[in-house]
Amino acid sequence: MVVDTLSDIEVDRIFQALADATRRDIVRRVIEREQNVSDLAERYAMSFAAVQKHVAVLQRSGLVAKRRHGREQLVRPLVGTIERARELLDEYEALWRGRIDRMDTILGEAEEEGA
């Protein structure tokens, strides 16, 4: 199968986690810089608890983890999982790029025949 390092359930969890714009934004931000939930919450028009919940969903999907840094807990990206989700879409994109290249070739041939 396409996914060999993660189970289907795990991959499903990744996609469900990334199906939300706020969660995608959280992932993007912690890739830029590890930060705690309070820092993250400042940017969104929602409660700390709501942001906390989004982070928990991301944690369960394996996209982020928390690590202790002095007195605070920082949210950090788990690059392996993020890469895998990206790879899956990369493969699908490559499939269509191939198809479109072949279409282009066929259209080119037809033109020569007609000329």
Partner: peptide, 8 residues
Amino acid sequence: AEELEQML
């Protein structure tokens, strides 16, 4: 994701 895999 299962559907995406299926398409692949």
